[in-house]
């Protein structure tokens, strides 16, 4: 609601009476303002839209299933974990990145690295990542888990200690749950202190499958 109307509705009757003239004047004066119509609006609009660093979406078929990627000129923005159905992966991507253009194909290095990983031929990723939208706490968590080597696992508690917040185990779990680029930022290598896998965006079955692929002892 407009602050003007909300304010008026909060006044008691006496205040309403006292303020009546002033409020009327304050309501009618702006209506009589003469502000010239803007003239540069469409030129400005066209210039800005041409400069928009748009996200693009693409699907990558791998041995693990159809993965989805979102990227722009600065790098990979998001990754959707493999699913058996191409359509499901695409739908998931489009829900997360509405309006984003569907590219004919993923940038070559992205699709190559993902395919090689799924084939068990790649242990580390080199594609540039674009993490501009990641909040500082989550960024700290994601930076720490990038250090967990291929084939190894760590616990949520370990991650919490590494970021200097040993009591923030639950928050670490949430930050990993919202990992925008799973697999490449290997949140699947983080498990519970009891040795249980706990959670995974792509399902526990996939988490176990990835760890087996990497040869981690679980």
């Amino acid at each position: 609601m407009k602050a003007r109307d909300a304010y008026r509705s909060q006044l008691n009757n006496k205040e309403k009476e006292e303020m009546k003239m002033l409020l009327n004047s304050l309501t009618t004066t702006p209506r009589a303002e003469k502000i010239p119509a803007p003239q540069m609006q469409s030129a400005t609009r066209a210039k800005l839209l041409a400069a928009h660093n748009e996200f693009q979406l693409a699907l990558v078929e791998t041995r693990l299933g159809w993965m989805g990627v979102a990227f722009n000129a600065q790098g990979l923005v998001g990754l959707h974990l493999p699913r058996a159905s191409r359509a499901d992966t695409l739908r998931g991507l489009q829900e997360e990145y509405p309006n984003a253009r569907i590219a004919g194909a993923a940038p070559r290095e992205i699709s190559r690295e993902l395919k090689e990983y799924a084939d068990g031929k790649r242990r580390a990723f080199e594609v540039p990542l674009n993490l501009v939208a990641v909040k500082p706490f989550q960024r700290a968590v994601l930076e720490v888990i990038q250090k967990i080597p291929f084939g190894q696992v760590r616990t949520y508690a370990w991650v919490a200690r590494e970021i200097g917040k040993p009591r923030a185990v639950r928050a670490v779990g949430h930050a990993l749950g919202a990992n925008p680029i799973p697999l490449i930022l290997p949140c699947h290598r983080v498990i519970g202190s009891d040795g249980g896998l706990h959670g995974y965006g792509g399902g526990l079955e996939l988490k176990a499958r990835l760890l087996r692929l990497e040869g981690a002892m679980i």
Partner: peptide
Amino acid sequence: RRAQTSATGFGELFDIYYERIYKYAY
């Protein structure tokens, strides 16, 4: 979200707010 991912989405944001911001400045 639309404005972040696409130019058309940013265009929506622009269309909704350009005049308001212009008048504010004016």
